[in-house]
Amino acid sequence: MSSTAKSGKKSSWLLRLLFLSPVLILFAGFFVYPFFFTLYASFTRWRGIGAMQFIGIGNYVKIFADGTFHLALRNNFIWALSHGFVQIPFAALVAMILLREPKGWRFLRTVYFLPNVISTVALTMVWSSLYNVQFGLINEFLVKILGKQTVHFLGNPDIALSAVIFQTVIYIGYFMIILLSAGMNIPKELYEAAQIDGASVVQQERFITLPMLRGTLLTSITLAMAYGVRHFESTYLMTGGGPAYATTTMGIDLFQKMDALRYSEASTVGVLLILFGTVLIVAIRKIFGKSDPMSDMAQ
């Protein structure tokens, strides 16, 4: 009896390894190896040609002294927070409404997701024209209808960051579908029972949907913040990180350093970006999740 248990244990170890191995092999190839490559490059002087020269922490010293990097760090922090705590609540609100299956909800669900499949190049052109200080629709609305002054959304360093962050409202569909697919698994009986008990819609959402979606919300917030930390493309296309570096992010900084063939400095920014993201996400999980990352989602 005990021998069969033992062999069962052994085979389950083998099976676990078998199940894990494809992911682990690919992860090693496409994440672990490049990470160590980047980490090593960050301690060298290397312009993308020839051998890397080891120079210790010189790049880190240089980057920490660089004002642009400070701006990028601050902007990334704002990006991550706004992604996690503005975009997700909106996505959750819309998902909760759609879970009640209002008229046309299937159509709405599809349309909300559409911006995610349109090329970023085209979307940033839409926003650049919307924001234009002279010809943009938003300014036309401000001046003609509200009688306000024009706002130079992308040309004023104090406003540009908010403007490029605001354009992410069109992407709420991404997280909405995560929340929707989880919400659909909440047993309908719970709501029926609550209704019989006289709970209002708001109470039902507050005491049934939100607690049931807690794990998924945390997943979504984490994912959204990670996307905020590594954000790069749409801002780069819209502003190139300007004006006066007001919208630069670590991703943009990294890209522009590669563009200037400063690979070792770009790698340093990359390492710092990963470090910063990890710290931020661990902190969020500590605050909102239970200490054991596994138990918070198990029921």
Partner: peptide, 18 residues
């Protein structure tokens, strides 16, 4: 590239009087 990037970014700050 590096000097040109700085040129463009700081030109905004300069034109804005900062």
């Amino acid at each position: 590239a590096t000097a040109t990037l700085e040129f463009g970014q700081q030109l905004s700050a300069f034109a804005l009087g900062r």
